[in-house]
Nucleic acid binder design. Structure first.
Length: 421
RNA sequence: GUGGUCGUAGCUCAGCUGGUAGAGCACUCGGUUGUGGUCCGAGAUGUCGCGGGUUCGAGCCCCGUCGAUCACCCCA
């Protein structure tokens, strides 16, 4: 007879708990800060949407929509999908709430969980976290670069080094159509296996990304989209590169870059980290000219990106960027009550410290002093105060610096000032 | 979704050709009166992922299943 069956987390979900959650939080906040200081504001959206939104917005031919969505029927018989990416939902909300009727561009950021039913792998989860930005309603190379710079600045301020930025341009519709025609003609002569041929029909650009050497070398001579750009598109792309150069943001042009979502046009980019194995993309994005109109909004352009928080965290770990003390916690002071009589005064002091904004904690239960000191040590607190009857009655404490071991005498009235310094 | 590898204490792992489990770290307590991080001593801890099967007997063999991992597909 079985007493219980332990319940496991669903397949492929990542969880962040202490101490690593501290690093996760740092990564996410750093990514968000970079957007905030560039004038972007929060948009908080539902995690599930009408399935139709993604079919129309992301594109039915994409892998994401055709085989990776968590779709279910709700109690009203509506088809609902857990969001697999962020941009479509943002566009929906912008249109629905008339955000595009005010001053443009609308600049917003978001952060949260996304869902794709793929086979899990390191850095690829079924529930994953992204920080994204969208700048909607203006089309200019400066804005393209601003968005790229937000990501680049965030990575740099985390201390990341082993990553590179790849950019390309998908041009306007006329450029893409001309190229597509020639590319298909080229591919039809390639004598592909059935599976690969089927993939080529869905999106011929995919073949540029194939990992097999024979396909790679065959594709060396395939026509690339950059050679088909209209004069306007080419000029825009040149301008993007010029501004990137002026800002000192290193990049390489990769004419064979492939993006997985149908809505991209014009400038597109990808950040790739070199120490992450197969799932090396830590962020990517691009311009989307037709998306707003496709979803029933005004015919205005936008640009945005999604950064993978899980992957950026892995990248930071691969580069050994985290200070162990940071992960340990951020307590300023740790209190130890000695004896039952001291407890209530200690609790009161702890509460006062917290109210004063000083991160503090105390030893719970009735641990021996030695055990309590150990707990103080492990908490990572900067200081420790032991409160016994003497301290409570005299109002004078010894505050100990846990790093140096030095002790200093303070009084009840000067303690908060001392710690708030 | 396809293929390879793996799944033993909280963590990292050991466990020889099948005979009912061990180490290090961590944890708890102690090393005489109220001060941690080092050192010494003692102690607790395991549905051997789960379910079947083969066997007198399985952590070790077989099947299934769940999960992880690596690669493919694809992507953050």
């Amino acid at each position: 007879m079985k007493e219980f069956q332990a319940i496991q987390a669903p397949k492929g979900v990542s969880e962040y708990f202490p101490p690593r959650s501290q690093n996760f939080e740092l990564v996410r906040e750093t990514l968000i800060d970079s957007a905030r200081i560039s004038g972007y504001q929060l948009i908080e959206l539902p995690m599930f949407e009408d399935t139709e939104l993604f079919k129309r917005g992301v594109g039915e031919s994409t892998d994401v929509v055709s085989k990776e969505m968590y779709t279910f029927e709700d109690r009203g018989g509506r088809s609902i999908t857990l969001r697999p990416e962020g941009t479509a939902g943002v566009m929906r909300s912008v249109i629905e709430n008339n955000l595009d009727k005010g001053q443009l561009p609308v600049k917003i950021w978001y952060s949260g969980a996304f869902f794709r039913a793929e086979r899990p792998q390191a850095g690829r989860y079924r529930q994953f976290y992204q920080v994204g930005v969208e700048a909607i309603g203006a089309s200019s190379p400066e804005l393209d670069v601003e968005v790229i710079a937000i990501a680049d600045r965030a990575f740099k301020s985390l201390g990341l080094k082993s990553y590179r930025l790849e950019i390309t341009s998908l041009g306007d519709a006329a450029s893409r159509n001309a190229h597509r025609k020639d590319l298909i003609t080229f591919i039809e002569k390639m004598n592909l296996d059935a599976e690969t041929a089927a993939r080529a029909v869905l999106n011929p650009l995919r073949l540029f990304d194939d990992k097999r050497e024979e396909i790679r070398s065959a594709m060396q001579n395939a026509p690339v989209l950059l050679d088909y750009l209209s004069p306007e598109s080419a000029a825009e792309f040149a301008s993007v590169q010029e501004i990137l150069g002026a800002l000192g943001i290193a990049y390489t042009v990769n004419p064979r870059m492939v993006r997985g979502l149908d809505y991209y046009t014009g400038t597109t980019f990808e950040f790739i980290h070199e120490k992450l194995g197969a799932q090396s993309g830590i962020g990517g994005g691009g311009r989307y000219d037709g998306l707003m109109a496709e979803l029933g909004g005004a015919d205005i352009s936008g640009i945005g990106f999604g950064l993978g928080v899980d992957r950026v965290l892995l990248a930071c770990e691969a580069e050994g960027l985290f200070d162990p003390e940071f992960a340990a916690g951020k307590l300023k002071v740790y209190l130890i009550a000695l004896g039952a009589q001291s407890k209530s005064a200690t609790i009161k002091l702890l509460n006062d410290l917290r109210t004063a904004g000083i991160a503090s904690d105390m030893a719970y239960g009735d641990r021996a002093l030695k055990g309590a000191m150990k707990a103080a040590d492990k908490s990572g607190a900067q200081y420790c105060v032991v409160l016994g009857e003497n301290e409570i009655s005299s109002g004078k404490f010894e505050i100990k610096d846990m790093k140096t071991g030095t002790v200093k005498e303070v009084t009840m009235s000067t303690l908060i000032d001392f710690l708030a310094e």
